[in-house]
Amino acid sequence: MTENCWRPSASVEALHRRGALLADIRRFFAERDVLEVEVPVLSRRATSDPHIDSITALCNGDTAYLATSPEFGLKRLLAAGIGDCYYLGKAFREGEAGGRHNPEFTMLEWYRCGWDDRRLMTEVGELLSRVLNTARVQSLSYRELFLRELQLDPHTASEQQLHDCAAREVELSFVPANRDECLDLLMSHRLEPAMGEGITLLYDFPASQAALAKVLPDDSGTPVARRFEAYVGGLELANGYWELTDADEQLRRFQADHRYRGIHKLHVYPFEERLVAALEAGMPECAGVALGIDRLLMLVGGYTSIDEVIAFPIERA
């Protein structure tokens, strides 16, 4: 039925809220002298992230990909000396659809030169407080949250302990393949719902989930990813890094992702070697974060499904 429906799934009121939110975000960055920039949505290179798939397009007869995030383009601009900057526009992910996902979505991503993850976390908290009109912000480490809710240290627990905990807490149809799958299950099924109301900034992720963040020892000497996520009422909104600037390490991570994708029979995309070249040339020390605007709008208006904030989600697009 919905295939034939010409109407937007979002109300006119929700679409007015979207316009106001985008305008407010642009004001926020204008006040702070952060420059809005554009980067390609259609690219010849794709993400290497093991758990994110790109949508393939045809361009001038060649394979191209819709950007899963503006990260590579923005980092190339940073290496070129653009300074503090943000992108506010579309990103695309294959296979992601549901109450909180649409394959085409609106992403805000910004970078702060000379900042680390902690300082950027504070700014994420400020933006969210302003938009959501709340002062309730808690920050805690990934370890603290696991200890608080599950009495389990995610960095030092044995693989067996993680498996036992996942099997106890979640009704599973499969045996988790590794530590990270256990941690992901516990995070999405047990910990996100336990975060409570207000804004939660979670930092110091396991080193195995560093993606493109620096890995450094924490106070206890455990190597942790200097990566953070922002949640509101358990809904994941943003993911940020103290960015990796080491070109050799970047190349190793791309190659490791490729190996992982190969072993797991996932599609292997051409990775962005121009990012490695940009890092070789020199990218300033910086922190960056990506934030899902559709989900933020859900929170602003109290909507429960992403279809209520997107005029034409994929079934109607």
Binding site: D49, H51, I52, G95, E96, A97, G98, G99, R100, H101, D180, E181, L183, D184, L185, M187, S188, H189, Q209, A211, E229, E236, N239, A290
Partner: peptide
């Protein structure tokens, strides 16, 4: 009910 669950950087599950 079928809920698609996916941490941004993690594995995708269906609850």
């Amino acid at each position: 009910e079928n809920e698609f669950v996916k941490p941004g950087k993690g594995q995708a599950f269906n609850r």
